[in-house]
């Protein structure tokens, strides 16, 4: 005997438990940026640090208070010492980074595009990349003397390898079908490189700039600590030798600000060159 469909539905409904809402399960794994929390955390750490210094929990000799650091920084500014040190550091940083980047881009493009450069290039980079570049500073001092060229060379050498790796990685990541498209329309090789490969590799190259600029700052400070009269690294080392911890931390703060400035500049460059994304 066949039941009417409405009867069957009614039977099923009465047999079922009371209706409940479907539980939303897709929570988490989606972190969002919160500028207020970022600044708040920063301010809270400084406030705690100042509190610790004021109450004597943190020894002034081991770690000067934020106020003392600010005073030391102000002193460096008004005496003009900061500009002397910062100017010397910036010169080395920019010069070394540009030399390493230009050479790295050139070699990276060769390795990325030409079979004859691929195997020797990859072997060369793999063998030399893991060497801590500061270990070569004594060698560069022998080659170029204790002056500026050895510092430029150390920074350039450190910047060169990540730039090569990111450049040829970027070239490798350019979609082959875009290159084939260019070839199918008979674009000359130089046009394929300039209009397809270079813009296609740019996102990876730019992310390589972030790594290479961090490496450049590390090598700059290390090189200045080994043999320089002026420079933020020299300032920090001299302050440490004299137990002027306020000046030492002021130098570190300048480094942090320098890193932030470089990161901001690269961010702007990113936004300008990769606006299409």
């Amino acid at each position: 005997m066949s039941h009417d469909i409405s009867e069957v539905r009614a039977e099923r409904q009465s047999a079922a438990s009371p209706a409940s809402q479907v539980r939303f399960r897709a929570t988490g794994f989606n972190p969002k940026a919160n500028p207020v929390a970022a600044w708040g955390f920063f301010v809270a750490v400084i406030a705690l640090w100042q509190l610790g210094s004021s109450t004597g929990v943190i020894s002034e000799l081991a770690m000067p208070s934020p106020v003392a650091v600010a005073k030391a920084l102000w002193q460096l500014i008004v005496t003009g010492d900061l500009w002397l040190h910062l100017g010397a550091s910036l010169q080395r940083l920019v010069g070394g980074w540009i030399m390493g980047t230009v050479a790295g881009l050139f070699v990276g493009f060769l390795v990325g595009m030409f079979s004859w450069a691929r195997s020797p290039g990859v072997a060369f980079v793999s063998a030399l990349f893991p060497i801590p570049k500061i270990a070569l500073l004594p060698l560069f001092i022998i080659w170029f003397g204790i002056g500026e060229p050895s510092k430029f060379a150390t920074i350039a050498f450190g910047v060169f390898f990540p730039t090569v790796i990111n450049t040829f990685g970027g070239v490798d990541n350019v979609q082959r079908n875009l290159i084939r498209m260019g070839q199918s329309f008979d674009l000359p090789m130089w046009s394929v490189i300039r209009k397809i490969i270079l813009p296609g590799a740019l996102p990876t190259i730019l992310s390589g700039f972030r790594i290479s600029s961090s490496i450049a700052i590390i090598l700059l400070i290390a090189a200045e600590m080994i043999g320089a009269q002026y420079g933020i690294g020299a300032l920090i080392l001299a302050a440490g030798n004299l137990y002027q911890t306020d000046q030492l931390i002021a130098g570190v703060v300048v480094l942090s600000l320098l890193g932030l400035c470089v990161s901001w500049l690269l961010g702007r460059l990113d936004r300008w060159l990769l606006a299409w994304r």
Partner: peptide
């Protein structure tokens, strides 16, 4: 002249 299955358009243009 080719017409590609996956369009092959330059995303930056």
């Amino acid at each position: 002249t080719y017409v590609f299955q996956d369009f092959a358009l330059l995303p930056w243009r």
